[in-house]
Each structure stands twice: as structure tokens, then as C-alpha cells.
């Protein structure tokens, strides 16, 4: 556990050209391998024929309109929902086998205002909450005092990392949505996972916080070679950090670099209606002509 600067790593292009990164040059075992996969929910086929390989350190966004099975993909990777066709391997085994190496952030959670537990305790549960027994206090002399100190230090470290030190000791129910979300990201990071599954983590944040959290996740992904799969509503805050986009739509799916996938012809084909993608001067993508029931990438939240 050594701290090192990331400045040399943070040179990912602000424009959307996907420059091959130096890690990509050598072969790495895949974190996720999905082959010709299909899934059903409530008797309805959500997606099929999905092929996806995610390598360590890769940052993948899952985009698409509501109800198309983005969160379902996350559930499948966690092993909570079986595939009806195809094959899936996660972290070298069947889905669900290595969930303790996965940091998971479910969609849109906010804690009850009356919940009287500190943010720090929430983060600590992410580290060892699955273990049987009761936690001994940190000052208790015996046994396993080294492990307890290491756990306390690790919690402190991830709280620092997400910039939540100022409020980690307050009852989590009293915190704002953005503060809670940072603590939940710290909770997901606490066990030093090999894969992060984040379901709309930027949803409850304002714009400056969205950019900050997106940059933080990208930094962790590269520095610690953690694969990240992020379900997102709006691609713009994460666009400059992305390696791969999985675009799910009612008319099929498309996987590739952001430049390949978020294009007028591709989206037109996926949605079966004319769609144009414009690039603003700051590199943001503006998608125009989505059907009314779909959410535009650059538009305000409905």
C-alpha cells in the first residue's frame, strides 16, 4: 500500500480519440467475458447476442434508454440473474463466485434521514461486513490487533480518497445525496476490488461533483488496474475517461470505443429513427433526435 502520484497516468485525451494505453500492449486476463449472451426479465427478452470482454483497468460505460436492461446487465455479472443463452465468466469463474472481489454500487440509494450510523461505519461494512462475528474495538489489545489497525487505516484511506473526511463521522442520514454517494463509493472501494460495478453513480450529484467523481473513478481504474463497468444516463461527464461503450437499445446493442458507438449512423441504426451526434467545442457530445421516450445524453434529466 504505497502512495504514488498519478500525474503521468492522467494524460488521457480530453477529446474522444481512444489512444491505446500502455497497459493495453501486453496481454491481460479478462475480468469479464460475455459470449453471445441473452437475458429475460418478466418473460421479456431484454438483450441478446451480447459479446463483451473487459480487461483489468478498462473503463466501460453501459448506455441506453430506460428499461433496456442496463441494470440487469449488472445483476447478471453479480450472478443474481441467470443468462438464458450464452456464457459468462467473471474474474476467472462463473458469475457470483467471486463477488467479494467486486465493488458494487446499486442504483439510487439514499439512507433514511433517521439512520443514526456514521458514514465511517457504512464504509467499514464494505470492508468486512460480510464476516461473521462482532467487530472488536480498535483499541482492544488481543487478538488480531494488527488486522484491526489495518482495517481502520484502510477505511480512513478510502474516505480520504473520495474526499469525505470532513463528514465521515456524522450520521449518514443527515448527509446530502452527494456526500452519501461519495461514502458509498468509498464503501465499494474499501475491499480493494478487482472490478467495480457502478449503477448510475453520478445520478444524485450536481455537475461539479459529477466531473470530480468521474475523474476519481477513472484515476482509480487506471492506477490500480480496476475494471470499471458504469451504468450511466449521461455520457458526457465520463466521456473523456472511457475505453469502451456498451450501447443497449431496443433495436440491438453496439459495443466499441465511444467514437465508434456514439455516432449518428450507429444510433440511427440502433433506434430505427434518424439521430445526429454533434460535438461541441469542449468535446461534449450532443445527441439530437432521440425518440421522445428516450433520454438525450446532453439534455436535462427528465
Amino acid at each position: 500500500m504505497t502512495a504514488h502520484s498519478l500525474n503521468s497516468d492522467v494524460d488521457r485525451q480530453p477529446s474522444n480519440t481512444v489512444a491505446p494505453r500502455k497497459e493495453d500492449q501486453r496481454p491481460v486476463p479478462a475480468v469479464i467475458t460475455l459470449r453471445d449472451a441473452a437475458v429475460e426479465r418478466g418473460g421479456r427478452r431484454l438483450w441478446s447476442g451480447l459479446d463483451l470482454t473487459v480487461a483489468a483497468g478498462e473503463f466501460v460505460a453501459v448506455l441506453g434508454p430506460n428499461g433496456v436492461g442496463k441494470s440487469t446487465l449488472v445483476q447478471v455479472i453479480l450472478g443474481a440473474l441467470p443468462l438464458i443463452e450464452g456464457e459468462l465468466r467473471v474474474l476467472g469463474g462463473p458469475a457470483g463466485r467471486a463477488n467479494r472481489r467486486i465493488g458494487y454500487l446499486p442504483q439510487r440509494r439514499s439512507f433514511d434521514p433517521s439512520l443514526r450510523v456514521r458514514g465511517r461505519d457504512i464504509v467499514r461494512l464494505g470492508l468486512d461486513g460480510h464476516r461473521w462475528g462482532l467487530p472488536l474495538p480498535a483499541w482492544w489489545p488481543w487478538p488480531g490487533v494488527t488486522a484491526r489497525r489495518a482495517a481502520t487505516a484502510r477505511v480512513e484511506e478510502v474516505i480520504d480518497l473520495v474526499g469525505a473526511s470532513g463528514y465521515a463521522d456524522r450520521p449518514v442520514g443527515e448527509l446530502s445525496g452527494g456526500e452519501q454517494q461519495r461514502l458509498l463509493i468509498a464503501q465499494a472501494l474499501a475491499p480493494a476490488p478487482d472490478l467495480l460495478l457502478l449503477d448510475e453513480p453520478l445520478d444524485s450529484l450536481d455537475l461539479p461533483n459529477q466531473a470530480a467523481v468521474a475523474a476519481l473513478i477513472a484515476t482509480i481504474s487506471r492506477a490500480q488496474r480496476v475494471a470499471v463497468i458504469m451504468v450511466a444516463h449521461d455520457v458526457n461527464p465520463i466521456l473523456s475517461h472511457l475505453d469502451t461503450v456498451v450501447y443497449l437499445a431496443p433495436g440491438g446493442s453496439k459495443i466499441g470505443s465511444p467514437r465508434e458507438v456514439i455516432t449518428g449512423p450507429t444510433l440511427t441504426q440502433l433506434f430505427g429513427t434518424p439521430i445526429e451526434v454533434l460535438t461541441a467545442s469542449d468535446g461534449r457530445l450532443v445527441v439530437i433526435g432521440h425518440p421522445a421516450h428516450c433520454d438525450g445524453h446532453a439534455g436535462p434529466e427528465p
Binding site: M1, T2, A3, H4, S5, L6, N7, V10, E157, D160, L161, G163, A164, G166, S176, G178, E179, A192, D206, P208, N209, A212, A215, L216, T219, I220, A223, Q224
Partner: peptide
């Protein structure tokens, strides 16, 4: 404050 600065150092 709502937006706290993001540290760039990563420790693992």
C-alpha cells in the same frame, strides 16, 4: 462544502 477537492494520490 459540497465539492471537496479530489486528491490525485492513490494508495492501495
Amino acid at each position: 462544502s459540497e465539492v471537496s477537492p479530489m486528491p490525485t494520490g492513490i494508495a492501495r
